Computed example of a mutant assay.
Amino acid sequence: MNSPQARFAPSLDSLDPVLRKKFAQVTQIFAEMEQVLVAYSGGVDSTLVAKLAWDQLGERALAVTAASPSLLPEDLEEAIEQAQVIGIRHEIVETHELEDPNYAANPINRCYFCKRELHDTLRPLAQSRGYDYVVDGLNADDLSDYRPGVQAAVERGVRSPLAEVGIRKLEVRQLSRQLGLPWWDKPAQPCLSSRFPYGEEITAEKLRRVGAAERYLRSLGWRQVRVRSEKDTARIELPPQQIHEFIQKTDLEALVKAFQAAGYLYVSLDLEGYQSGKLNRVLNSV
């Protein structure tokens, strides 16, 4: 096996000195852990963590992805491909959050029950393989958002190296690009359960329906897109600057037919455009 130094030789001279310092701190964290299991979704954050773990620890790092109905199959395939590019060992486990009525009821702290299921699956796996640490891709910006899943991770001793040293989302992308990761600008892709308003029950069929709708939009070339699902209505969200182009270029009749074939009765376009965490606005009005 190559030494970490042989695998890891990027030039970070062009980075801001503050970010170079954070990078040195986060790599030191991994070196001190000695062996680690990465909760790896395939998103840009956890993929950077997997890359850093591999560069420092080699075969003493393991990336594990949880497969469930809330993860699009193509997102799982991307996670597999990215792990292969990095070189890190990668395994897939199944999680069963939909079987938890606390999760399926979709309360405002749904993510707590999701992360509880995830880490109650990963922790025993880590212990059985001799890994003292489980780490995730939480970054410093996530700490200022409403993320009840963080509590579940903390309760189970999960560490968040990026957040620990103050690496923010933009810096995650900067480091990923500098390290030569081709998916450094990959759009955020939270689980499909985040498409439903709090209080609407989540089922496997609803996840399939919203997944099919987003898959159709992706097939048209729209990378950063959300389909917000509320009962029989689908509401499409795109970056504000792309709305006009979307209306001009899209065969709207074909789109409506595709969405109706997926199971929706009504299709709408959010004229405000995509904003991360938009569904959390209801929390501020209570």
Rank of each mutant, 00 (worst) to 15 (best):
S11P: 10
S11I: 09
D13P: 01
S14P: 00
L15Y: 02
D16R: 14
K21T: 15
K22L: 01
Q28H: 15
L52W: 03
A53T: 06
W54P: 02
R60G: 10
A63Y: 02
V64L: 07
V64G: 01
P69T: 09
P69Y: 03
A79E: 01
E81D: 13
Q82G: 04
Q84T: 09
V85D: 12
I88A: 11
I88L: 08
R89N: 13
E91M: 13
E91Y: 06
I92C: 02
H96I: 04
E97V: 04
D100A: 11
Y103H: 04
A105D: 07
I108C: 07
C111H: 06
Y112Q: 12
F113T: 02
K115N: 01
T121Q: 06
Q127N: 12
G130A: 05
V134S: 06
V135F: 13
N139L: 10
N139D: 10
A140M: 12
S144A: 14
Y146H: 15
P148A: 06
V158H: 03
V158A: 12
P161I: 12
L162H: 10
R168E: 10
R173I: 00
L175I: 10
S176T: 03
W183T: 13
W183A: 10
K186I: 03
P187V: 02
P190L: 02
C191G: 01
P197T: 03
E201W: 12
I202F: 11
Y216W: 15
P240W: 07
I243D: 01
I243A: 08
E245W: 13
K249E: 14
A261G: 14
Y266K: 15
L269S: 07
S276Q: 14
S276H: 13
L279W: 08
N284R: 15
